[in-house]
Design a protein around this nucleic acid. Structure first.
Length: 191
DNA sequence: AGGCTCGGAGTGCTTCCGGT
DNA sequence: ACCGGAAGCACTCCGAGCCT
């Protein structure tokens, strides 16, 4: 069985389930995410492979993080998630690789993702609902360029940046070497 | 109860655009 | 030139409401 196909099947199923959970029609989600309803329909039926940017917009429209989406498609029976079992998703457009490190189904509000950004690649994400999430970015290897609003940072191995997700943000690798980093996303508790 | 109309939801087809 | 992602338009399907 093809592992990539499998995860994409589950992403498609999870996107549809989340949309139905919110009682949104294709047109509703299209308006919220700025993705056409025809495209959303195709993604849900696995007729199209969404890019990271597109998935980010869909997640924003569904009020979830990309991490939340990925965690939801993991096998909930696993507590110890071995490296071999961790779902890996690759953006067909940029080659950006995303490994969901944290096991699903633990009830934890923290999600950890190991990301690898190829040389020259750029990934942008829209803002998420204000105050719902915050994020730490820990450099592992290479140098990551992170921009949020008017703020720009270079994150090298061992550097750790904290930021909220209530502004559009961009990850860029401006170097000639792959850049690896960890993203730790915490869901803030409702008051 | 059965038939008709209308509107919303989802899908198919076509076109455009950017990258290779 | 070719390919794949994305959007727009038009079509079909289906359920609700209305009329006879």
């Amino acid at each position: 069985m093809n592992e990539t196909d499998n995860i994409e099947d589950r992403i498609a199923a999870r996107l549809k389930a989340r949309r139905e959970e919110l009682a949104l029609s294709l047109a509703d989600l299209a308006e919220r995410s700025a993705v056409s309803k025809a495209m959303i329909s195709r993604i849900e039926r696995r007729e199209a492979s969404p890019t990271a940017a597109l998935l980010g917009r869909l997640c924003a429209g569904l009020d979830i993080t990309l991490s939340g989406l990925m965690a939801a498609v993991e096998d909930k029976s696993l507590v110890l998630l071995t490296a071999a079992a961790q779902p890996v998703w690759r953006d067909p457009e940029t080659g950006f690789e995303r490994r969901a490190v944290t096991p699903a189904g633990t009830g934890s509000s923290v999600e950890i993702v190991q990301a690898t950004l190829p040389p020259g690649a750029r990934i942008s994400y829209p803002a998420l609902p204000s105050g719902a999430y915050d994020q730490h970015i820990l450099g592992v290897s290479g140098v990551l360029r992170f921009s949020s609003g008017d703020d720009h940072f270079s994150i090298a191995a061992g550097d750790c940046l904290h930021c909220a997700l209530d502004q559009p943000h961009v990850f860029t690798n401006q170097t000639g070497e792959p850049c690896r980093y960890l993203v730790i996303i915490a869901r803030r508790k409702a008051r």
